[in-house]
Design a protein around this nucleic acid. Structure first.
Lengths: 136, 136
DNA sequence: TCTTGACCTGGACTCTGTCCATCGTAGGAT
DNA sequence: ATCCTACGATGGACAGAGTCCAGGTCAAGA
């Protein structure tokens, strides 16, 4: 994601210190942080950054397709910086840990047209659930 | 779901008017209501029913496996009374409409053990997204 | 009918996210 | 290098979804 800021600048994004810090936080560990976690980590480097800015910036990154929004539990949305490699998610029902996984096959192909009810289906998200080694 | 109350009584559930009304609301149209929608419909029959009771009852029905919790948009959770027939969901990105669908194949089989990271994987939820005929 | 513990109520509270008026500043123009 | 200005940041109020709790109520067995 090191060239992310370049790409965004090319799209007319004004690069501010706040946006840079948010991008750096996402670029750090490849984990799935909530907006408030992103805010907390960003605030370590830029103490005055506001929650609203973090929410705005994350929303823009999602709209630009640089980050994926994941909501696996109906609680806070999580933000996945791994947007350029298609993948699905494996979630621990015990502790909530999330891993990126790469199933074989294409779930879209498994939905017959009779089951599409006239919808233009464009995407299939799969959430695998189970227990991680520590919780089992 | 007509025998739902019988099954629940058999499991030691105390059948109250509130629980009966919530079960009847879910049994009505086979749509995917939010908790507040369930509360609104329940309140038409039993005006004093409280939100807390609706939340509690829905949570109990989910824990007992009689109802499935669906969160397709990171907003309010929705409750799906069609718990006894395995299915997935097709969501309209425009208006949020939800349909039950029955894909072929088993997504669990598409997750190789190398991609399981030691998890005991028990379930795969698929959310298909696209545009419904009216929104397209 | 009585008793009792499970259940219900309403309101306060938390968490997540959005909105808005105002202030600040990135970056092009000079 | 400096100035301008529109875009972005701020923070506090607000809203929606859900949880918690103390106290009152009632289903169902004795």
């Amino acid at each position: 994601m090191s060239d992310l800021l370049q790409r965004l600048r090319g799209r007319g994004w004004r690069v501010t210190s706040q946006r840079r810090v948010v991008a750096e936080v996402l670029d750090g560990d490849h984990v799935h942080l909530t907006a408030d976690e992103v805010h907390a980590r960003a605030a370590q480097r830029l103490p005055e950054i506001s929650r609203a800015t973090v929410y705005n910036t994350l929303g823009e990154l999602v709209a630009l397709g640089e980050v994926i929004e994941v909501s696996t539990d109906g609680r806070a949305k999580r933000y996945d910086p791994n947007a350029h490699r298609p993948h699905q998610h494996l979630v621990c029902s015990g502790c909530g840990a999330i891993r990126d996984v790469h199933p074989t096959g294409d779930p879209l192909a498994d939905l017959p047209s009779k089951e599409r009810f006239g919808f233009t289906v464009s995407q299939a998200e799969v959430t695998y659930r189970g227990l991680c080694p520590s919780c089992a």
